[in-house]
Every structure is written in structure tokens, then in C-alpha cells.
Write a protein that binds this DNA or RNA. Structure first.
Lengths: 365, 365
DNA sequence: TTGAAAGCGCTAACAT
DNA sequence: ATGTTAGCGCTTTCAA
């Protein structure tokens, strides 16, 4: 009979350990370990006894101890900007699902778009010895996060890019260009780009795409406004401009490219309030194709990101690095962006009817 | 000079340990530990040397090892139904924030409303030796989760209830009653309740509230329909009924209480499609007050849940159990539910105008 | 004020 | 087929 190391009765509060199981099954702890890890070299009868003991005690292996001795965790950190934003919520869910499928446990940290909490979150993940990190957001501009990572843990940016790191994202510049061209083809000339004050990396590329389309068309200048939803004004070249005035027909802005759907929808709300009609007075194109955008009452024309692809490839990319299937310089994977035309865009009020570009595939978010 | 235990140069891939720091600072590892844990009994000069070494190596304590030896983690598990649902997304974010404030690290698992993955998620949290678990959803009906928990780890239900466990939630029955009474006071008599096939605990209470209000008014019977958004039909008493037919004026149903906002909004979409107007033909009341519901284009009358309170009290409740400030039988905390009247409810088309009940406080989700 | 030593629960050689 | 043993990186007595 195997010796019971701990002479006392099992504490009511403490979780049973591998030793408790070994004692009950009257085997050594290695045998229990062999059963848990499905090592074949265990006789049927012994295995049965061990399994019986495990169930009787309600034993569950301590992952912390296992990962400590294995010198490798299965924790995958996910840095999210704002879980309450439906785009990130959906991405978080998909990432978790794919991570689980690949044998990893997702650990989220919400940064609230704040560089300090982003760094705190990354540090926490590092202290948990996360096997890899997925960035859905990146607020830090100072390089502190890059330094903290110090090439010690594989990371991937999903939905945005960073030159020092693997990434999976759509061609944001192309998306911005396409969105703007859609407005131009409808006949719009006075087109502005509206973005949020808390600008993400990907926003810059989308804005650049807008700029290129405007330059190429040669019509009208490009104007980028930073708008905090709720405010009546937006910042343009360091000056505040009144939005209501900006859009006032007949000579106001008739087309808007918003760098994300939430901003686009907030703008719709604003326009509704000041009695400007979408799309009769103002056409709007968003970016992301959140579920919301597909509601008939919103019906927002937008650039769709293939969320499922982004999640799948993001996990695959970081898993390949973790498992050593991939080495070398940062990889930049591209996913396809697509225009989804809905009811928020139409020719400007003074424009003759003409055929309208259609999306490659209409999707319902 | 202290002996360097590990003679080799530090590996490029492995994270530095407390021993590496000790060797570099020429102290023992206990001293390093004392510095990390801010134990006062360390001389200023020693502390400085250690801190210097920590920074030079980019050392970060291994939380796994620490929690193993301390026999207690700071991991707080959060079981979520669907992160892509804005109500849960927002709750997840708030819970994470409050958990962090209380010194815990949130670890989410998304169950997709599926009992099997819920149990898998709980098992995972148990294997990580989570200090406590917050349930935002509960799909399992078999008691398997309760048995797995086996009173070994403190848990709290937030937004729903379970008699074997602490909970923080609004009075769902009162909410359902209030929502129905609002419709009744507007003059509606033919009022149905619409819920999802994947019914949560809290849905049952909301439906019960609807039933009580209907019974009390003595007008019309109560009818509960299970509807899968996208379908043209809903299940009622085991039979399928056509929604379009159900609402057709003048003798169709004129008022709907939906057990959550997402279902309510999906119903709005459906009604829009079949050319029934909200609220002229059909009035709708939802439940949750998600951000979406406050958009002018949706303008859904709904029962608001105090999300911030739920999150704060949920964390406080489980933290109290963990930290031993609380013992004894399950606690059931109540949060206030509130009617938010918006544009989706109005008197029925054949009803004379009359004063309308107003919300305690109009909120913008 | 510092250091030595005994584990926490587990895995993975290596012995038997 | 099963047991023995040496750690994984850390905290925490207890001695010095």
C-alpha cells in the first residue's frame, strides 16, 4: 500500500491534488500523472482505479502547476480596445472560439483606448507568461509596448498593422479609397472624412485612402475632421467647425466617409436631429460592417471586414509562431475588404440618375 | 560575490527568473522576493541594486509560480453567453474594470448559449483555480455546473438568479409586469410576449411578470411566443403561428413585450418589412436598454437594467466571499429596473389620446 | 537586514 | 508497468 503523505483528512476547503488521488488509488503520483496525460503505458486495471479515484474526489489537475513545470502556458492574451463596441465584441468572440479550437485559453484585457491600461494589460499577460498575444487595438504610441514585448512573446495585430509585428488585416487604404470612390461615382464632389479623436493605426490608412481618391479625382480638396460624437463641432486643421453648418445644402458637404461604423451611425443621429436627410442631403459610408449597420432602420453603406477570416488567420499566425512552425521577419497577411451598398448612399440631390456601383456580395453583417 | 547558480549565459528565449535577478544584484533570491513584495525590511542600497537588476533584465515575476505557492489565485472567471451581444459586451467590460480595481484578473469564457461549452468553460476555470466565478449566463439545466462547483469556489450570478448561489439582478418579474402595464395603460389589450428559443433564467421571470399583469388586467389572455429572428413564424403552445398574420390590423395584436432588446429590434425589422408601423400599428417594449435602443432610428421603449450597479455589486459580492468577509447562505441582491419610454410605444390606433406614463429618468443607454 | 531551506502541484526523465 | 526523483519559479518561515 502506498504511503499517504498527508496524514490528515482532506481539508474541506482545499482542492484535491494528484497525491490525494494517488493515495486513494494506491499508486504513485507518476501513475496518476500518466493516466491524466493519457500515456499509453498504464495497465487497464490501474487506469480504472485511478479514474475512479479522480471522480470520487472530484479531482482537477492544477493548470498553474502543470504550466510551471512544462515551462509553457496555453494562455493567449487578447488586447481589446472596447468590448462594448460591437465590432470588437464580435472579434473577441471569434478569437476566443478559434483560440480554444487551437488548444489555447483566451485572456482578455480591455484597454479603454488608453495607453497606460494597455501597457498594464500587456504586463499582466507577460506575468501570466502568455504564450502569445493578439492585439485588436493599440493605443500606445511611445513604443513602450513593443519594448515590453521585446521579441520574447509572439504577437499578432488583427485588424491593424505594426511594422515590427505579424499582422492580419484588410487593406485599410484600399478600403478608404474604395469608400470614397463609391461616393465620387455617385456624383459627390464635396466629400469629407470623419474620424474619432482617439485614432487607431488603421484609421490613418483609411484616411490616406480617402486622400488618394480625392487627389486622383482632382475634384475638391480632402478634408479630415475629428469628431467626438455628441459634440456639435468637429476639429479641422486645428480649428473647430460647426457640423450643422458644414452640411447645410445647397453648398454644403454632400458625402462623408467615416472611418468606422459607430462614428457613421452617430453622425446619422446627428443629421437626423438637425433635419438633414440621409441620403437625400448627405450620403454616408462607414467601415467595419457591424451587425447594426445592416438593420433596415440604419441601412449603412459600409466597407465590410471579413471578421471570421481575420480571427481565424490571426490565431493561426500567432499559433504558428508559438509552436515554432514559423520564424523570420514579420508577416503581413491581407484580408479582403468589400463594399456593401445600403441605403445611406445615393447621388447628391442635384445629380442626374445614373447606374450605381454594386457590392461584390451583399451581406447582412 | 554571490554564486551564479546557472553558469550559462541567459538564454535568449527564456524569461529571466528571480534567480537571475539575485545573481546580477548579488543578493539571495529571498531578498529579491522581499523587494518585489515591498517588504519593508530591506535596506535602501540593496533595494536599489535589486531594482536596477530587475530593470536591466526586464524581469517580471511569474504569476503562475507565485499563485502556486500562495495557494490562491487572483483569477476571476466570467462566464458570458455571447460577447457579440452588446448587453453582454458592455457587462463584460464593466466586470473586467471592477475586477481589476478589486485586484483580480478577469478570465472570460464565451458559452454560445451552449450547456456543453458552459461546463467546459467552468472546468477550465476550475483547473486554473479561479478564485471566484461570475455567471452572466447559465445555459446548463442539468445541475452539472452546480455539481462541478461543489461549493468549492465562490460564485455569483449577475443579471439572473439561481437559488443555490449568490446573485445580483433586477427584479425581472417586476420588470416584465411594468413593461406590460405600460402597454396596458396606453390602452393596449391584445398584448403578447415574445421571447427567444434559447431561454435564459431571467426570461422566465420576465414572462411571469407579463403573465401577472395580463391576469390582473383581466383583459385578454396571455400568450407567449418563442421566435427565432429571421423566421416568419413563431411557436405558440406547440404550434407555429404566422407573425405577419398575428399583427394584422384591425384585430391583430397591438402590443408586444419582448424579453430582450435584441429580440425587440429584430421584431421591429420584421414589422418594417411587412409594412406594419411601429408604434402606429404595433407598440413594442424591450428589456435591457442596450445602447442601440437609444438611437433615434430605433427609439425602443425598454426596461433599463443598471449595468454599472450590477457589475459593481457582482464583483463586490464574489470578492467578499473570496476574501472571507461573507459566509452563510446565498445572498440575493436586487438592483432597480426602470422603464425608459421612447418612440416604440404609443396608444393603439383606435384609442383616444390620454396621458402616458413617463419613465423615472430618461437615459440614453 | 539578509540568507538557507522547505515546499506549492505537477511533469518527465530515469530506475526498477 | 510502475515508482523514484529532480526540479519549474516563487513565497515564507526560521536562522544567522
Amino acid at each position: 500500500m502506498a504511503t499517504r503523505i498527508n496524514g490528515e483528512a482532506p481539508s474541506t476547503r482545499r482542492a484535491p491534488t494528484i497525491m490525494d488521488v494517488a493515495a486513494l488509488a494506491e499508486v504513485s503520483k507518476s501513475t496518476v500523472s500518466n493516466v491524466i496525460r493519457a500515456v499509453p503505458a498504464v495497465s487497464g486495471s490501474t487506469r480504472a482505479r485511478v479514474i475512479e479515484a479522480i471522480e470520487q474526489l472530484g479531482y482537477r489537475p492544477n493548470v498553474l502547476a502543470r504550466q510551471l513545470v512544462r515551462q509553457r502556458t496555453t494562455i493567449l492574451g487578447v488586447v481589446v480596445g472596447d468590448l462594448a463596441n460591437p465590432f470588437y465584441g464580435e472579434m473577441a468572440k471569434l478569437l476566443e472560439r478559434h483560440a480554444a479550437r487551437a488548444g489555447y485559453t483566451a485572456m482578455f484585457c480591455n484597454t479603454e483606448g488608453d495607453a497606460a491600461s494597455e501597457l498594464a494589460g500587456v504586463n499582466m499577460l507577460l506575468e501570466y507568461r502568455a504564450a502569445g498575444i493578439v492585439f485588436l487595438a493599440h493605443a500606445d504610441q511611445s513604443g513602450a509596448v513593443e519594448r515590453a514585448l521585446a521579441r520574447r512573446v509572439p504577437a499578432v495585430f488583427v485588424g491593424s498593422r505594426q511594422d515590427w509585428c505579424d499582422s492580419v488585416a484588410v487593406d485599410d487604404e484600399r478600403g478608404g479609397r474604395w469608400a470614397t470612390e463609391h461616393l465620387q461615382e455617385l456624383g459627390h464632389r464635396r466629400i469629407v472624412c470623419i474620424t474619432t479623436p482617439a485614432e487607431e493605426d488603421s484609421d490613418a490608412a483609411r484616411i490616406a485612402g480617402y486622400g488618394k481618391a480625392m487627389a486622383k479625382a482632382g475634384s475638391g480638396q480632402s478634408h479630415v475632421l475629428r469628431w467626438l460624437p455628441g459634440s456639435e463641432e468637429a476639429e479641422h486643421d486645428g480649428r473647430l467647425v460647426s457640423l450643422a453648418h458644414l452640411f447645410r445644402p445647397p453648398n454644403g458637404v454632400s458625402g462623408v466617409f467615416a472611418t468606422n461604423d459607430l462614428t457613421a451611425i452617430d453622425l446619422m443621429e446627428f443629421l437626423d436631429r438637425v433635419n438633414l436627410r440621409v441620403p437625400a442631403d448627405v450620403s454616408i459610408v462607414g467601415f467595419d460592417n457591424v451587425a447594426l449597420a445592416g438593420l433596415a432602420r440604419i441601412s449603412l453603406t459600409t466597407m465590410a471586414q471579413p471578421r471570421e477570416d481575420l480571427a481565424r488567420q490571426g490565431i493561426a499566425t500567432v499559433a504558428a509562431r508559438i509552436e515554432g512552425h514559423a520564424a523570420g521577419p514579420p508577416r503581413r497577411l491581407m484580408a479582403e475588404v468589400d463594399l456593401v451598398v445600403r441605403g445611406s448612399t445615393a447621388p447628391p440631390y442635384d445629380w442626374p440618375n445614373q447606374p450605381v456601383e454594386r457590392s461584390t456580395a451583399e451581406r447582412s453583417a
